[in-house]
Amino acid sequence: MLERFSDKVKKGLRGWTERMAGEQQSDQLQALARTENEYGVDPFGFNLDYSLAAIAPFMWLYRHYFRVEAYGADRIPPGRVLLVSNHSGQLPLDGAMIGIALMVEGNPPRAIRSMVEKWVPSLPYVSTFMARVGQIVGTPENCRRLLEAEEAILVFPEGTRGLNKLWPQRYQLQEFGLGFMRLALETNTPIVPIAVVGAEEQAPALMNLKPVAKLLGFPSFPITPTGTPFPLPTKYRIYFGDALHFTGRADDEDSELDKKVRTVKASIQAMLHQGLKERRGVFW
């Protein structure tokens, strides 16, 4: 009985997803490539049907709450690719919006994978959900295996430094790690820079209570104007840049890798500046 109820819920959510996507973009969802084995999942636990049901509330956010506009989603090259984006907003909704943009507006549509922090799967009930919707712990080995399988992987080199930045630091890119560049060179993978405008204002952090965060085992404990990380209905604009190709050795000195990383970072920062210049306001 519980299984039948679960199937009914998933079917209802899948229908909700398709209705919000609209007829044309529902066809996009149907065209997503499947990678499941005979058990309905891929080696990392991803299940496309589960994912299409699970994204229903995020599709609503995409269409009606954040009213996302995506530019250049057709620039994603086929095959393996690293999608490198700025990160902000206290909750990782920017990643979800990027994922939906490439599902419904990519050409061809792509179901992307995201690298999540190592502490995320320790949260109750989260580990299985994350696996089913294609999110995996961000280890080099996991990323390498997915790239070898020709997947598109979303990474946030700022990590929690970007996600939990304070209000005065908005749209100022924080330090980028070098790991994504090592993997790009090792696997001959192109990098597509992405800039998200709008997420910075969805839950502005006025201060970070580090002692409380340490006590709770969280990376940060931001204080927002609403007292919660619940996002404000800001207007999202997502910009996809042209693919960047790099040559060199994965085991080069950090200084050499950092030069390449700064090229990616500069591309993202330029798109952020342009997006901020062009937008009419935070909420429209």
Rank of each mutant, 00 (worst) to 15 (best):
F230H: 10
E253W: 13
A56T: 06
V104W: 03
S127E: 11
V104A: 01
G159N: 02
M103G: 02
A111F: 11
D258C: 08
F240A: 03
E117G: 08
L216H: 05
R63W: 03
Q28T: 03
L215A: 11
Y239Q: 07
P124A: 04
L102T: 06
P219L: 01
N188T: 13
K259T: 12
K260Q: 12
V84S: 05
Y71G: 00
M181A: 00
L173N: 02
H245A: 06
G22Y: 00
P109I: 01
T234M: 05
I153E: 07
R132Q: 03
R280T: 14
Y239T: 07
R161I: 07
K118L: 14
F221M: 02
G162D: 02
L29V: 07
I55Y: 07
W60Q: 06
M59T: 01
P157D: 01
P43F: 14
P124W: 09
T160P: 11
H87I: 07
N164I: 05
K277A: 15
G134S: 04
G45M: 10
F180Q: 05
K259Y: 10
P124Y: 09
M181N: 00
G159C: 10
E117P: 09
N37A: 14
G241K: 00
W119M: 12
A184Y: 09
A56M: 04
D94L: 06
W119D: 09
F230V: 12
Q135H: 14
V126H: 09
A56I: 05
Y236F: 14
R161G: 06
R14Q: 09
K165P: 08
R170W: 13
P77C: 10
K214Y: 12
A213Y: 06
S127K: 12
N164G: 10
A195Q: 02
A131E: 12
F221H: 02
D251N: 11
M20P: 01
W16V: 11
W60T: 02
R75D: 08
K11Q: 14
A243S: 12
M115T: 07
M271Y: 08
Y171S: 08
G95P: 03
I136K: 09
A266M: 04
R161F: 11
S114L: 15
K265N: 03
D74Q: 11
Q28H: 13
A101G: 13
A54N: 13
G248H: 09
L272N: 00
D258G: 10
L29A: 04
V137D: 04
S220K: 01
D42T: 11
P204K: 05
E201P: 06
L257M: 06
P43Y: 14
I98C: 02
D27W: 13
G217K: 10
A56Q: 02
K10T: 06
I191R: 03
I76E: 01
K235H: 10
I223E: 01
E256V: 15
V155L: 06
L123M: 09
A33W: 15
E36F: 12
S88Q: 01
Y239H: 08
R63Y: 02
M181P: 00
